[in-house]
Design a protein around this nucleic acid. Sequence first.
DNA 1: GTTAATTTCGCAACACAGTTGCATAAATAT
DNA 2: ATATTTATGCAACTGTGTTGCGAAATTAAC
Lengths: 124, 124
Amino acid sequence: MSRNTVGKSKILEIIQSSPIALSHATIQEQMKGTCDRVTIYRILERLVKENEIHRIVNVNGVVNFAACKSCSHSSHHHDHLHFSCTTCGELTCFEDQSVDLKLPSNFIIQEYQLTVAGLCGKCS
Amino acid sequence: MSRNTVGKSKILEIIQSSPIALSHATIQEQMKGTCDRVTIYRILERLVKENEIHRIVNVNGVVNFAACKSCSHSSHHHDHLHFSCTTCGELTCFEDQSVDLKLPSNFIIQEYQLTVAGLCGKCS
DNA sequence: GTTAATTTCGCAACACAGTTGCATAAATAT
DNA sequence: ATATTTATGCAACTGTGTTGCGAAATTAAC
């Protein structure tokens, strides 16, 4: 079983108290040297596996993490939309926006990555 | 103005004759040492700017390139869906699948990145 | 409570995608 | 034919993410 360490709790708290998705680099900054770079990667990996957070690939290719709000631990649906601001870089989740897709029946969907980039409310 | 060089023509041809989107690494392979790594990056950049191809960030964070089929040189709409196969790695464009999004009015959309990952028709 | 088994951590080193600077080469304009 | 502009190749670098391994910390067993 996965253990609850100081680093893990702190990282989860940082992500949960953030209104936007955070990158590894940003989290590392907020950890202020408490944790090793690699440890942060591994903790994030664990938190994803335990369904505490979900990973979103930003339009710049960098992975961001956000807390799973509307997901219970059993049912996960990360098919919602993300908005990435090209000015301030903030990645926002629109958990109410789910998209219905009509793919050929032999295509099996495992993971969603629905992101739109542009200017967010603050920057427009 | 941008020039039409041997490398540029060859790369455009590789992308246009491919049914799936290609990464820099794959294109470099197909160029068989004709072109420097960096030159390929720069040619791809030029082709994107000239609206010959468009870039899609795959779920693994790697940028892929596909020819602009249904886009004229004046009107671009890259709001269509992409499917990334987790087994064979192929990135397919669904140019007929456009998604309607309902964002707050103060959000200005500049770029789309709508990708779904899973098993493609061949791998399912 | 002490010891053994697991898990996590930190460090070093690595892999890979992508970028920048600069001198040279090639293509276009004069 | 020469000057100007653009493109290329090479080297070096940045940033994100990964792997291996010994040490430290945590949990389980005795």
